[in-house]
Design a protein around this nucleic acid. Structure first.
Length: 324
DNA sequence: TAGTAGGAGTAAC
DNA sequence: GTTACTCCTACTA
């Protein structure tokens, strides 16, 4: 825990910080503090009902926990991944060395909270970007057709276990969806309407911010290369191998269903075959997609020299022939 | 039982 | 023509 990064006011060591599931109890809290810090909404630049995720900046990175209702991450994650942005402590505020006056402490805390805000927004925007690319939809919900809305609903439903929610919001365009109040969402789905409304609200806030201040890209070299391959011709349909690689590039979201075994060699493992197949089916509008069919498509890549089985063949483990 | 491998027909682009 | 989907049989761990 000696790594520099987000500094807790008055602490020399780095505590774990969570942003809890916001529509339950929106707050930011240093868990090893006796008393939680509960910053105002303006801290995150997010609406009251925030992103359904749990954020844990340990050491120098921020991890978004996939399951919003799990708040059990207390272990520090592995060393920072290249794609994760680091937190810079920034220049010391006047008087910080001693941090003796309440004014100085306030400045430190303010800067610290700004770091959190920037970090969280960056992660939210990256998630929005990822979803847009994977689903092939515009970032602005106002531009969504009924099909785009269904894609987004299926995606959200699957990601956050919002059972059957997509069936309750059928035949709606993005504009329809955006014009609905939270009560309308609750009327359609008593159980998940509020969560879905919150999710859409965050999505819209993130895209609005993105338009105001385009994010600075700080991708790693390999990520750049892959993105170039994948998005040079956005009008062309995405290939399965590209889709798999995109999932692999987002371990904070998809490591539970697909992960690298050896990134340098391009070896990866499908941890949850049904989940990956379902995501691919959503992406391709193939509701009947399953792993049997997906794996058949993967095997077609053997002949083309795109994917193969590793030298030591294992179940659900494949290898990109030409990893970047 | 689930995953692997590959043949073959079909559809979309 | 290419790519992926679908269905199938046979085999393996």
């Amino acid at each position: 825990m000696g790594s520099p990064g987000l500094e807790h006011p008055g602490c020399t060591t780095r505590p774990s910080l969570y942003i809890t599931h916001p529509h339950v109890n929106p707050r930011v809290a240093w868990l090893d503090e006796a008393e939680d810090i509960k910053p105002p909404r303006s801290l995150l630049g997010l609406p009251e009902l925030s992103w359904p995720g749990v954020y844990l900046p340990c050491y120098d990175r921020l991890v978004i926990e996939e399951n919003p209702w799990v708040l059990g991450m207390t272990e520090a994650p592995a060393p920072a991944a290249p794609s994760c942005r680091t937190l810079e402590p920034g220049p010391p505020a006047p008087g910080q060395a001693q941090a003796s006056s309440p004014e100085a402490e306030g400045q430190v805390e303010e800067r610290c909270l700004e770091q959190v805000q920037s970090m969280v927004l960056g992660e939210v925007l990256k998630d929005v970007d990822t979803a847009c690319k994977l689903l092939n939809i515009a970032s602005d919900p106002l531009d969504w057709s009924c099909m785009h809305v269904q894609k987004w609903l299926l995606w959200t439903e699957h990601l956050y276990r919002l059972s059957q929610v997509s069936t309750m919001f059928q035949e709606l365009t993005g504009r329809d969806l955006c014009s609905m109040a939270e009560t309308d969402f609750r009327q359609r789905s008593l159980q998940f309407g509020e969560v879905l409304y919150a999710h859409l609200d965050i999505w819209r806030s993130a895209t609005a911010l993105k338009e105001r201040c385009p994010p600075e890209e700080s991708k790693s070299a390999d990520e750049d290369s892959w993105s170039e391959v994948m998005y040079t011709y956005p009008s062309q349909p995405i290939h399965l191998w590209q889709f798999l690689h995109e999932l692999l590039l987002k371990p904070h979201s998809y490591s539970r269903c697909i992960r690298w075994i050896n990134k340098e060699k391009g070896i990866f493992k499908i941890e949850d075959s049904a989940h990956v197949a379902r995501l691919w089916g959503i992406r391709k509008n193939r509701p009947a997609m399953n792993y049997d069919k997906l794996s058949r498509s993967i095997r077609q890549y053997y002949k083309k020299g795109i994917i193969r089985k590793p030298d030591v063949s294992r179940r659900l483990v494949y290898q990109f022939v030409n990893p970047v």
